[in-house]
Design a protein around this nucleic acid. Structure first.
Lengths: 340, 340
DNA sequence: GTGAAAGCGCTAACAT
DNA sequence: ATGTTAGCGCTTTCAC
């Protein structure tokens, strides 16, 4: 039933000639313990190689010091970075992160969260793809929950979201100034809330003379790569990816087709993942405040964990970053040319 | 001391008119329980919204179902991907991953591991940067440990490593055939075991007529970006990054300087992160079997968790992937030209 | 097939 | 300042 005989607090107590409580006090740096005894206990503990059982502490203390984090895809640098931010911030407060990667499968999320909830003091959901009813059902878990990057969740749980509208408007102005009057949006996973937001931000920002179409893509490099040709076929002079991965995937495909960016066609994305800056041309993108996401998420969750009420929403803002992938509209539409 | 009154197994037992034991049996799908009772219990549990306390189960069962994973940097897609692999594989066995990001600080690792160990059944260290003595000291934690991507650890703990020598030899042959006789290695973090391995693999693979120099870089995009000029100054006709991030960072810097890759200078990397394929030119690289890393790590750890002995080492092999970033050596050395 | 009772290893009143 | 005692919420023998 149990594994190898452990060094329990009791053995240390015996070895040091004191009671369990005293050992516990020493191990937890409780003040008002005889310095002599502290030494004796520390000594015994070290000699025996005593390491308190986290599990037992958890049960006794009624908390685990663990926060569960759900992400749609760890391989997406956006989420890896947000996770990194959360983990860094949580660590400062002595918490650790238990991660679950839903693999972009909305159905898997609920299952994961149920599991996570049983081991953690609180939950942070990053860009959850699950349905609103499912999301709402999480209230029953009776655990502090914070949602990152899914706006409509704001009414249900404290959440940190981003307002991209201003930045998208900037993007549209930028493209308009470059002469682009036909934009094609490479849309994201249907269940990603960000997809709807970005699309409607675009719709409400484009000039009336500008044509805006959309082509289904996804959330990953391959999705953009695969969707590029269809997007090209719309005759658009600028492609806008659901996120940077999609945009970069599209750029790669365009280059394979011998179409140069931005000379023959412009491309823009969302997120500003680190690669956006380092590819060539650099990717024009609507930057998400990734590090802040993690920080703010923790700031929202942290008081909540200690039973205190917390503000329900924190809205960050996105910013347009102009790089080389968007340029003057060429006269004719882009057409495959000789390989680059 | 405790938080909101919980629905315990006792309340369910009362509501269903049975004993705790029976409820426990039902919740754990133990056979030999009266179907009638199963229903009654399930009902009561659902009605009360009973969710067994993971912590209590952990203590009672003597296991947590958690495996601690240490990575040097979550923002590095190599580690994010390895983590994803581990997490996927572990999940199949009902385990979850508790992550710790050491932020490329070797000193932080030990502290993290001590913490992780108290909450988990086993530990997986990804490319640990800590010193060998520190690594050795982990044996005292008395917890199953598997090390990924740090060769010399093979004697201490079961580990999954990669043998890059063959692939590096391929790379050297490839570069030699292209006429490169002066290579410059942009080295990684001093404490990364992979750095030493890659450097010595290069040293032992280059033709005698080939000059091999090294310039300090690091593990991230910025490091490569920053080191590019120094590397250029060595007069090398091919830059080899410690990893793909460094290589891509260097490419970005070169392009800023108006130097085209591979026309004026070639660049290669290690890992084959997903961006290596999608940048232009595609990056020639020594590909690590990333997904396999995670799988094999789990395969090594899993039996270990159940008390069974496990084989000590699994060596995967790297493979050379040739893409557009390496080309024929140009006549003169690369020099900054007009911006691309 | 079901219940009673003894833990799992620790913390935290409470008493001294 | 230290020891005693009663849990934390579950699992698991061991009787019935």
């Amino acid at each position: 039933m149990r594994r190898t005989r452990q060094v329990t607090i009791l053995s240390v107590a015996a070895a040091a000639g004191v009671s369990k409580s005293t050992v516990s006090r020493v191990m937890n740096d409780t003040p008002n313990v005889d310095p002599q005894i502290v030494i004796r206990v520390r000594d015994a503990a070290a000699r025996l190689g005593y390491r308190p059982s986290g599990t037992a502490q958890n049960l006794s203390r009624g908390r685990t010091g663990i926060v569960g984090v759900l992400v749609p895809d760890l391989a997406n640098p956006l989420f890896a970075t947000i996770l990194k931010g959360i983990s860094a911030e949580a660590e400062l407060d002595g918490y650790r992160t238990l991660v679950a990667d839903a693999n972009e499968q909305p159905d898997a999320e609920l299952r994961h969260l149920n599991e996570l909830a049983r081991q953690s003091d609180g939950l942070i959901l990053c860009g959850p793809r699950m349905s609103m009813p499912d999301l709402a059902s999480l209230a029953e878990l009776d655990v502090p929950i914070v949602v990152v990057n899914r706006r409509p969740a704001g009414n249900l749980f404290p959440s940190v979201t981003v307002d991209s509208r201003e930045a998208v408007a900037d993007l549209c102005r930028h493209l308009d100034a470059l002469g682009h009057t036909h934009l094609c949006y490479l849309s994201g996973p249907p269940h990603a809330a960000a997809d709807g937001e970005r699309w409607s931000a675009l719709k409400s920002s484009v000039r009336s003379r500008t044509k805006l179409t959309r082509v289904a893509a996804g959330a990953m490099l391959d999705d953009g790569h695969a969707a590029a040709e269809a997007a090209l076929a719309t005759g658009a002079t600028c492609l806008i990816g659901f996120n940077d991965l999609v945009a970069l995937g599209a750029v790669a495909r365009l280059q394979e087709l011998g179409i140069t960016v931005p000379d023959q066609i412009s491309v823009a994305g969302f997120d500003d993942i680190v690669y956006a800056r380092f590819t060539s041309p650099g990717l024009t993108t609507v930057a998400m405040p990734m590090t802040e996401f993690g920080q703010e998420a923790w700031r929202l969750l942290s008081p909540y964990l200690h039973g205190r009420k917390t503000r329900r929403t924190r809205t960050l803002s996105a910013t347009l970053i102009i790089r080389g992938s968007t340029g003057l509209r060429q006269n004719s539409g882009a057409r495959p040319g000789p390989a680059a």
